[in-house]
Amino acid sequence: MRPLIGVLALQGAFAAHEAALAEVGAQTRQVRTPADLSGVQAMVLPGGESSVMSKLLESSGLFGEIQSRLSDGMPAFGTCAGMILLASEVLDGRADQRSFGAIDISVRRNGYGRQIDSFEADLAVEGESSPFHGVFIRAPKVESVGHSVHVLATHDGVPVLARQGNVMVASFHPELTGDARLHRLFLQQHDFQHEG
């Protein structure tokens, strides 16, 4: 059976992630309410506006549900705003903005600047023989990582792709480039491809 990946669909680039996940053979489900989590084995938290998602996570009752699944070891992949939601510390966020603290990193919201500073750059990703094209959109900037966080790629010396246990985060948008290698890497780490 193909793994069922929940894609947080409160706001943002969830459709692009679903397309990338389908390409690597996963089933996806848009998650907007706690009922949508039933049977979900792992989650992708997309880009969008992190403060908007934070509010909608609260009002939908999803925040606590996802928090407890993450504590139980549910694998998660967060990109851009999704990285902010998974981070242990958020700088320059709104005062009422909440995050799951599932990976020990400190990130600064819009740390790379406004849209006129948004950029593309090739990234060397650990274990990949050819560069991965990174698309950074009003991207969060990693300010520090804990000792148990494994950095998989950097740009200008700053971590942009990292992993800790079951949680992987990117400050860029692998769902926008038509290159599904990172989605495949996320699924492979958890051995989903051997199930059933």
């Binding site: 669909a9 409160l10 706001q11 943002g12 680039a13 969830f14 459709a15 692009a16 880009g47 969008g48 506006e49 908007v52 851009c80 705003a81 849209q115 006129i116 500073d117 948004s118 950029f119 593309e120 750059a121 698309v135 950074f136 959109i137 009003r138 948008h173 926008l176 480039t177």
Partner: peptide
């Protein structure tokens, strides 16, 4: 590279559902 079609179309992608 800044100001590219990909980053600019990409921001619209980030606003979806909002």
């Amino acid at each position: 590279s800044i100001g590219t079609y990909t980053v600019n179309r990409g921001l619209a992608e980030m606003l979806k559902g909002g």
